[in-house]
Amino acid sequence: MQATAAAHRHHLYSPFTAPSFSHHLSQTTRIGSRRRRRSPAPFGVRMSLRDDGPALAVVGVTGAVGQEFLRVLSDRDFPYRSIRMLASHRSAGRLIPFEGRDYVVEELRPESFDGVDIALFSAGGSISKEMGPAAVERGAIVVDNSSAFRMDPEVPLVIPEVNPDAMAHIRLNGRSNGALIANPNCSTIICLMAATPLHRHAKVMRMVVSTYQAASGAGAAAMEELELQTREVLDGKQPTCKIFKKQYAFNLFSHNAPVLSNGYNEEEMKMVKETRKIWNDMDVKVTATCIRVPVMRAHAESMNLQFENPLDEDTARQILNGAPGVVVIDDRTSNDFPTPLEVSNKDDVAVGRIRQDLSQDGNLGLDIFVCGDQIRKGAALNAIQIAEKLLQ
């Protein structure tokens, strides 16, 4: 039977009266959440400060993902005995409220990691390459959100619901040295949250993915520019194009990542390479086309899966219904399927349009449509879940 989304519905706002950019960063309610709800206040009160918790550092704390790190830490009651807010010299001295206390943003330096147990990085690849090893040398376990270390064979690339064994040798208690753990690309995380449960059942041989990626993937400045452009275009003005070369509002275009000699861009090749590493399967065939769409946050992906063994759509729906971190929204009667708006600020990845691929015989193919919040599960939440694994 098809699983409906009625039990998971929340009030939705019209895209023409959408809340501001800051609203998109601050809401924390979730579709299909299996965890209890907390106060809607940004960071609540100091419930997580504990003497037996690790010492944390948040690198790139003033950015969109850095701010989401703080929200997820608070939302999940992640224990910590201290927390350092780190950013560039331009942001040093700013005050950031977190769980009832104001923290001063410190300029990022190698010595910033003295005494730090876990460092959450979201400051870009160049900063990670410079400061990640410096943090490890000082004994910190670095969970890095950039692409700097993802394809390093010595660095685990982890989605906790998918391949937790990749980091099984790294634990906080009893360690003598620091370590690096890489967070996969947001599109890869959202894709594999849905594809992996099916892969375990029938083995994916080939995967064709088309992504529809939100402004959130390019950071806070891109989200602000999309909002600005929308107002400008509606007012008949020339849109401001600083982040992207093309008009973003009321338009879509190929992902802005550099195009390689093979015709794929770097974002597309990340999905190819990261999927193979995470699944530990160099033979799986992956091809992707990545597109920017004028959505504030949350990516969507259309996926065609070819299996080694037969898998019918009803069985696939049952598998996905039981998968951790996944909610099924698949009501054909009401034409009700996942949308980026509905998963924005939610933890779970939503899956729908589950149907047999008519171009393949013998139930060897499926088409599915997936939506997930790029800032949350595609970045900050996944990193915090990795940190939680370190405490187990």
Results as ranks from 00 to 15, higher is better:
residue 368 I to Q: 10
residue 165 D to C: 02
residue 282 M to H: 09
residue 134 A to L: 11
residue 335 N to S: 11
residue 157 L to Q: 08
residue 307 F to L: 00
residue 242 K to V: 15
residue 310 P to R: 01
residue 65 V to W: 08
residue 193 M to T: 09
residue 271 M to Q: 11
residue 304 N to W: 05
residue 330 D to F: 04
residue 159 I to N: 09
residue 48 S to C: 06
residue 168 A to K: 15
residue 221 A to K: 14
residue 249 A to C: 05
residue 238 Q to L: 09
residue 369 F to A: 02
residue 342 E to V: 04
residue 386 I to L: 03
residue 186 C to S: 15
residue 243 I to V: 15
residue 31 I to F: 05
residue 228 L to A: 05
residue 322 G to S: 11
residue 134 A to N: 08
residue 107 E to P: 05
residue 211 T to M: 07
residue 159 I to G: 07
residue 220 A to C: 00
residue 341 L to Y: 11
residue 230 T to R: 14
residue 294 P to H: 10
residue 102 D to W: 05
residue 205 M to L: 06
residue 22 S to K: 12
residue 275 T to E: 03
residue 245 K to E: 15
residue 355 R to G: 01
residue 337 F to D: 08
residue 231 R to W: 01
residue 47 M to C: 06
residue 57 A to I: 05
residue 177 N to H: 14
residue 182 A to C: 07
residue 321 N to F: 00
residue 151 M to V: 03
residue 372 G to P: 04
residue 294 P to C: 11
residue 109 R to Q: 14
residue 248 Y to K: 13
residue 52 D to I: 02
residue 243 I to E: 11
residue 62 T to Q: 07
residue 174 G to Q: 12
residue 372 G to Q: 07
residue 298 A to G: 13
residue 92 A to R: 12
residue 35 R to A: 12
residue 3 A to K: 15
residue 336 D to R: 03
residue 4 T to N: 14
residue 114 D to M: 09
residue 308 E to N: 00
residue 385 Q to N: 11
residue 260 L to M: 14
residue 34 R to V: 15
residue 134 A to W: 07
residue 242 K to S: 15
residue 275 T to M: 01
residue 148 A to R: 08
residue 42 P to Y: 06
residue 128 S to A: 15
residue 101 R to E: 15
residue 60 G to I: 01
residue 228 L to Q: 12
residue 266 E to R: 10
residue 391 L to G: 08
residue 369 F to Y: 13
residue 342 E to C: 01
residue 242 K to L: 15
residue 26 S to Q: 14
residue 59 V to G: 02
residue 182 A to W: 02
residue 21 F to D: 12
residue 14 S to K: 09
residue 153 P to E: 12
residue 10 H to S: 14
residue 25 L to T: 13
residue 329 I to G: 03
residue 370 V to E: 04
residue 106 E to T: 12
residue 81 R to Y: 11
residue 37 R to L: 13
residue 198 L to R: 08
residue 319 I to W: 02
residue 371 C to M: 03
residue 302 S to A: 15
residue 131 M to R: 08
residue 372 G to F: 04
residue 301 E to G: 05
residue 367 D to C: 05
residue 343 V to R: 03
residue 372 G to H: 04
residue 41 A to V: 05
residue 68 E to H: 13
residue 371 C to L: 02
residue 47 M to I: 13
residue 386 I to P: 04
residue 348 D to M: 06
residue 381 L to H: 07
residue 334 S to E: 15
residue 246 K to C: 10
residue 355 R to K: 12
residue 376 R to E: 02
residue 197 P to I: 05
residue 301 E to H: 14
residue 389 K to W: 00
residue 377 K to W: 01
residue 53 G to I: 07
residue 356 Q to K: 09
residue 83 I to R: 06
residue 350 A to W: 01
residue 323 A to F: 05
residue 213 Q to A: 06
residue 142 V to E: 10
residue 111 E to Y: 04
residue 292 R to W: 04
residue 256 N to K: 06
residue 241 C to H: 01
residue 239 P to S: 03
